[in-house]
Simulated assay, not measured.
Amino acid sequence: MNLHALRLFYYVAVTGSVTKASEKLHISQPAISAQIRKFEKENNIKLFNIQGRGLVLTPLGNKLIKPLEKMFLIEEQVQNLIEDHHNYPEGKLRIAGNYLATSVLIPKWASLFKQKYSAVDVQITTVNSHEAIEKLINFEVDVAIYSDMGVPFANPDEFECTELYRDEYLFVVAPGHNYAFHKVTLKEIASEPFIMREEGSAARERLLRLCREQQINPPQIELQFNGLHETILAVMAGYGVSFVSSLVAEPLLKQGVLARVDVPGISSMNSILLGTRSREQQEMFVHDFIGLVIQQLDTKV
């Protein structure tokens, strides 16, 4: 299989033209066209049709885009690992955490780790829980810390998962809201405008699951943010309801800048998990970071 020709085809397809692919790959347009035509001839297939002055993917060409995207993503990840090996001889610890983890938990753990392993480079990425899991599966990070989405790993033998904390999701509003400090039903609270994180966030998925279980209409999400801090600030400003982890909410409830809404009969626990690849695939400093986290579990956050 001529991977070079497939790479040329892929970049022509995603950029939309031989000209743009030529500029990106620094390969002449005639060379790209010739390689693709040769590949088509060798395999007795057609990847592009000419339409006017442009190229249009054939059905087969269209089918190849997704698997090629995955293949070249893996290639890029392998290249990044090799570059990291040369650029960071003492190692590079890559952590992906959801917004809750990176705002409340990871800063302390990363600081303690750097005090002990100052030569190891630490890279922390903030994403939602779904993206944290994807980054771990795709070898983009060594450790993922996220809220339980209720979906097990497809290949459980390749990964290890440890529960770090269990807390509760709470309905919160501004202190001046009509429902502040009151008891209401889930149906009543769901009729209010909600301020939530983007799709893929654990809190949003859990809220929608609660509504399905109780067979009520899901709330209208009137404001959506890609960050937990922004979501909280919008609620504090006086508009709408949110559904957030008590790890984040409790200090603000004590300060009086947020108020809880009591919804009897509704309890939604949040498990915060640490995921990593199996121990034989871990570098020693990754194992040491996990050990440090486990030691800190009894320490007050």
Score class of each variant (00 low, 15 high):
residue 2 N to L: 08
residue 3 L to P: 00
residue 4 H to Q: 14
residue 13 A to D: 12
residue 16 G to F: 09
residue 16 G to L: 07
residue 18 V to D: 08
residue 21 A to G: 05
residue 27 I to M: 04
residue 28 S to H: 08
residue 29 Q to N: 02
residue 29 Q to T: 08
residue 30 P to L: 14
residue 32 I to L: 15
residue 33 S to I: 05
residue 38 K to N: 08
residue 39 F to I: 07
residue 39 F to P: 05
residue 39 F to Q: 01
residue 42 E to G: 05
residue 42 E to D: 15
residue 45 I to R: 13
residue 50 I to K: 12
residue 50 I to Y: 02
residue 50 I to C: 02
residue 52 G to M: 11
residue 52 G to L: 09
residue 55 L to H: 06
residue 55 L to Q: 04
residue 55 L to K: 11
residue 58 T to K: 13
residue 62 N to R: 08
residue 62 N to Q: 04
residue 64 L to K: 00
residue 65 I to W: 00
residue 67 P to V: 00
residue 71 M to V: 01
residue 72 F to A: 01
residue 74 I to F: 06
residue 74 I to C: 01
residue 76 E to S: 04
residue 81 L to G: 05
residue 89 P to I: 13
residue 91 G to K: 06
residue 94 R to V: 11
residue 95 I to Q: 00
residue 96 A to V: 02
residue 100 L to G: 05
residue 100 L to S: 11
residue 108 K to E: 15
residue 110 A to D: 03
residue 112 L to C: 09
residue 112 L to F: 11
residue 113 F to R: 09
residue 115 Q to T: 11
residue 115 Q to S: 13
residue 116 K to S: 14
residue 121 D to T: 08
residue 124 I to P: 00
residue 130 H to V: 03
residue 131 E to K: 14
residue 144 A to C: 05
residue 144 A to E: 05
residue 145 I to T: 10
residue 145 I to N: 01
residue 145 I to K: 06
residue 147 S to L: 07
residue 148 D to K: 03
residue 149 M to H: 05
residue 151 V to Q: 00
residue 152 P to D: 05
residue 157 D to Q: 03
residue 157 D to A: 07
residue 158 E to A: 10
residue 162 T to I: 09
residue 163 E to F: 02
residue 165 Y to T: 11
residue 167 D to N: 03
residue 168 E to W: 01
residue 175 P to S: 02
residue 177 H to Y: 07
residue 178 N to H: 13
residue 181 F to A: 04
residue 182 H to Y: 09
residue 183 K to S: 06
residue 186 L to P: 04
residue 187 K to A: 12
residue 190 A to T: 09
residue 193 P to S: 15
residue 195 I to A: 09
residue 196 M to A: 13
residue 200 G to S: 13
residue 200 G to T: 10
residue 202 A to K: 04
residue 203 A to I: 02
residue 208 L to T: 01
residue 208 L to F: 15
residue 208 L to Y: 11
residue 213 E to V: 14
residue 215 Q to H: 15
residue 220 Q to R: 12
residue 222 E to F: 10
residue 224 Q to L: 09
residue 226 N to R: 13
residue 231 T to C: 11
residue 233 L to K: 13
residue 234 A to V: 06
residue 234 A to Y: 13
residue 235 V to K: 10
residue 239 Y to C: 04
residue 241 V to C: 07
residue 242 S to V: 06
residue 248 V to P: 01
residue 249 A to Y: 11
residue 249 A to P: 03
residue 251 P to M: 05
residue 252 L to C: 13
residue 254 K to A: 15
residue 257 V to C: 15
residue 257 V to D: 06
residue 260 R to D: 01
residue 261 V to R: 01
residue 262 D to I: 14
residue 262 D to L: 10
residue 262 D to Q: 11
residue 263 V to Q: 08
residue 265 G to F: 14
residue 267 S to C: 12
residue 270 N to C: 15
residue 271 S to F: 13
residue 272 I to D: 07
residue 273 L to Y: 14
residue 279 R to Y: 11
residue 281 Q to P: 00
residue 281 Q to A: 05
residue 286 V to G: 05
residue 293 V to H: 10
residue 293 V to G: 07
residue 294 I to F: 03
residue 297 L to F: 08
residue 301 V to R: 07
residue 301 V to Q: 02
residue 301 V to L: 08
